[in-house]
Amino acid sequence: MIAPFSEVLVVAGILFALGAFCAVVRRNLIMIVLGIEIMLNAASIVFVGASLHLSNLDGQSFVLFILAVAATEVSVGLAIIVYAFRRTGSFDPGNFNLLG
């Protein structure tokens, strides 16, 4: 007997709010991508918990796809960050104000 599903939802909700807070408040591109990672992680906790709650393996297979999407997003996102840093010499999203 583990804790009830509502407590899993509350824990994942707190994690998601922390990730959203990080992505909104920090003015550093790497911390923004980290915040998105935290939000994806909270979503996968809910999926695995719901998979146990409903005795259905669909939730677990969704987490597999979330892992793949997170890996994709991080590799392309970090490549974009390095490219932007080479062009502007800064991590502050406020400095990226040139088109082209």
């Binding site: 007997m1 583990i2 804790a3 599903f5 899993v8 918990g49 146990l52 677990q60």
Partner: peptide, 10 residues
């Protein structure tokens, strides 16, 4: 939602 989750493993 308040029933405790059972231990199951895939």
């Amino acid at each position: 939602m308040n029933a405790p989750l059972k231990m199951l493993s895939a």
